[in-house]
Design a protein around this nucleic acid. Structure first.
Lengths: 268, 268
DNA sequence: GCAAATTTGTTCGTATGTATT
DNA sequence: CAATACATACGAACAAATTTG
């Protein structure tokens, strides 16, 4: 009896799901039926279902039953700049363009603007002291009205001169913030550094993306630090955090000469 | 009584962990102690601990107790080519160089070479029929003797001519496969496309990386397709799958002019 | 709109097995 | 070997969500 019973039950159910005997979205037998079928107690059956649930194979709906999960068609975001437009798919116009190119409809909430104190994550990227003032602009992005990403950009408060007060207005800046900063403050982005990291979602992310409440689905964060010309080499002037649910998003980075086609989702 | 008791207990324990009252690695009270403290049954306490475990906040060791998890210092891999060497940090010499640059010691298993039939994932990338023959080279990489990544590169079998039989030998090719292919077959990589995707680990990955058996820790896969010059534009000639545990790895992509310093881990 | 039936969720008690010290 | 601590398993009861009649 090396393997516990709930694992045996879980394995059996799993094979039925992966073999296709129980199709995606199909309902599994109820807990009481499974109890009879496997001659176990309801609690043991529930342990097996819980095991499958942690691994994202099934989901339970109170009052309804247990269901095999639906496979999600992932969305692909291109991080490297489009050679024609120079824009990448994570932010602003580039993101909208890529979504449209894939035949889907992007939308975004008007930015929510705040002046706040830099936390450790922001301070480290902008090379400013923790607690220094920053302007943050938050945007919620949707694809076909479905929550897609949460984006926060932070600028040092020192950037906000009388010439560039629009940074503080909670409105979309026509043409994008980058063009605005270039026009008003002669700040040009000479390069950026993307960091990709995976972590568990926090509560607000779980709410916004409607993720399962357990820690099953991670989020991928793209941290983009933008640099401008400075006295001692490139100097950070903004940092953008974009959070994506990891179960329905992939990222593509092109380097050198690659096919022009839109990158399709991959398995791996 | 809107919130169930096991959630209340879990929340209380969680606050103690996140506030630092229970430091990383510290042992929590035993289940029986918790049962007395919260005036609940042992099963309810176990439900609370299970909730914390799914979210990666604690780990249990049979016969020992329940412990707050250790924070892992993530390792940062640079995907974009190093401007000086032209090598990226995911594979071959570039990976070794980046690990050494960070003051740590890389090592790798000698490659395991197989001739196998292309599955869907490989076939789609190489634009060959599913089931066509491919040569695969598997490498296990370690940092300071700790499992770091699993790498598999597939080449179409049609590449293996009498001039380039070394592809089939289970030995490290001095100078790397890229240089070898250029010398022997005049195949030069003119560009590559990286895809990053996050998924749950399979059984062999759980074993190799010593991941928890539940689905808590995801793996990030970097799928790199290498292109050479072809009659109708860039043509794929190899695809490399590199699998990293997502809880201890981050990825960096530089674009344009950025600081020369080694990118440090980020939060976000 | 309401009541009944169904289904999963929570909580308790208890017993026994297995890993570690 | 004994004590400790977590793991598995069973049975029972009631609560909450949902669908159905």
């Amino acid at each position: 009896m090396s393997e516990p019973m709930y694992r045996l039950i879980a394995r059996d159910l799993r094979e039925q799901i992966e073999s296709g005997a129980v199709g995606p979205g199909a309902q599994l037998p109820t807990e009481l039926e499974l109890r009879d079928r496997y001659r176990a107690s309801r609690n043991t059956v529930r342990d097996a279902v819980k095991w499958l649930m942690t691994r994202g194979l099934v989901e339970t709906r109170p009052g309804q039953g247990t269901f095999a999960v639906q496979r999600i068609q992932p969305f692909v975001t291109t991080l490297s700049p489009n050679p024609e437009t120079g824009l990448s798919g994570v932010e602003g116009a580039g993101a909208f363009a890529e979504v449209r190119e894939r035949g889907r409809t992007p939308s975004a909430s008007g930015p929510r603007v705040e002046v706040q104190l830099a936390d450790g994550a922001i301070a480290a990227r902008l090379r400013i002291p923790e607690g220094a003032q920053v302007v943050t602009r938050h945007v919620e992005m949707y694809i076909d009205r479905v929550p897609w990403s949460l984006q926060t950009t932070a600028y040092p408060m020192t950037l906000v001169s009388p010439d560039a007060l629009d940074l503080l207005t909670a409105q979309e800046i026509p043409g994008g913030v980058a063009a605005y900063l270039k026009l008003k403050l002669c700040i040009e982005e000479i390069g950026h550094r993307d960091r990709i990291l995976v972590r568990l979602p926090n509560e607000s992310e779980i709410r916004f993306f409607r993720l399962p409440d357990d820690g099953r689905v991670s989020v991928a964060t793209v941290v983009r630090t933008g640099y401008r010309d400075g006295d001692h080499g490139p100097e950070p002037y903004r940092v953008t955090f974009t959070v994506f649910p990891a179960d329905r998003n992939q990222f593509v980075i092109n380097s050198g000469r690659v096919p022009k086609d839109l990158a399709a989702p991959a398995r791996g």
